[in-house]
Design a protein around this nucleic acid. Structure first.
Length: 237
DNA sequence: GCGACAG
DNA sequence: ATCTTGTCGC
């Protein structure tokens, strides 16, 4: 994918937070995405004993969700994990992975928050602005806001509230299993984001784009970051 | 000042 | 995120 825009990532935590305040004004929480024929999931994996981050992006065809492309990038990162500044740790590696991907997904799922973030710019929103693509944040826990427990059935939802505002939705993707927290990343509306998450969650708590990215990121890490690209046209292995 | 805190 | 074996529940 062509990266429409880039900015320095070697910033201090204070500078990073300032940049987020600046970029947040460019996030679009309404969408124009029509039919989705290609989705992608992005994630990163790393160990605490190394400063190497292995980022991956997996593209899946819709509606069958067959994996059609996998790319990875392993990069050294010194920025530590700081709640609210995740993008400054995983962003550089993710951007390189996207640069290596030939597919042009209609929407990209990220492991983390979209606008449900202290400064309204979680990793899904931040990357969405840089890539100028529709993105969705699918987090396994909340960073800000609160949400009532959704009903036990699959498909049940409950709004994530913050100061009376709905900033996302807790979504039960699997019966009686802890919900995932969905928030708009960029160029998509919340209702559509929730629909897409439910449409791509098949039998597991995490939707396939995110789940496949998780699996591949772990594979790349365990293999030391050797493979950089892998394209499969009709199989998903 | 204290506790919370995506991955 | 990662470190880790078995184990309780659908």
């Amino acid at each position: 994918m062509e990266i429409r825009e880039i900015h320095p990532f070697d910033l201090t935590p204070n500078e990073a937070a300032r940049l987020q305040e600046e970029l947040r004004t460019r996030v679009r929480t309404s969408g124009e995405i029509g039919e989705v024929s290609l989705v992608a999931g992005a994630d990163a994996s790393y160990t605490k004993s190394s400063d190497e981050i292995h980022a991956v992006v997996v593209a899946l065809r819709c509606p069958d969700l067959t994996v059609v492309e996998r790319v990875s990038a392993s990069i050294r990162t010194l920025f530590p994990y700081i709640p609210g500044l995740l993008t400054f740790r995983e962003g550089p590696a993710l951007i390189e992975a996207f640069r290596r991907m030939r597919s042009e997904p209609d929407v990209i799922f990220f492991d983390g928050q979209g606008i449900a973030h202290p400064r309204g710019l979680g990793i899904a929103s931040h990357m969405g602005v840089l890539l100028d693509r529709p993105t969705i944040g699918v987090a396994k826990s909340l960073l800000v806001g609160t949400a009532a427990e959704p009903e036990a059935g699959r498909g049940s939802t409950s709004p994530i509230l913050r100061d009376g505002e709905t900033i996302g939705m807790a979504v039960r993707t699997k019966e009686s299993i802890k919900p995932v927290y969905v928030s708009v990343g960029h160029r998509v509306e919340l209702s559509r984001a929730v629909d897409l998450v439910l449409e791509t969650a098949r039998g597991y708590r995490l939707p396939e784009p995110t789940r496949q990215a998780h699996l591949y990121a772990n594979t790349v890490r365990k293999e030391g970051g050797g493979v950089s690209r892998q394209t499969t046209l009709s199989h998903g292995r």
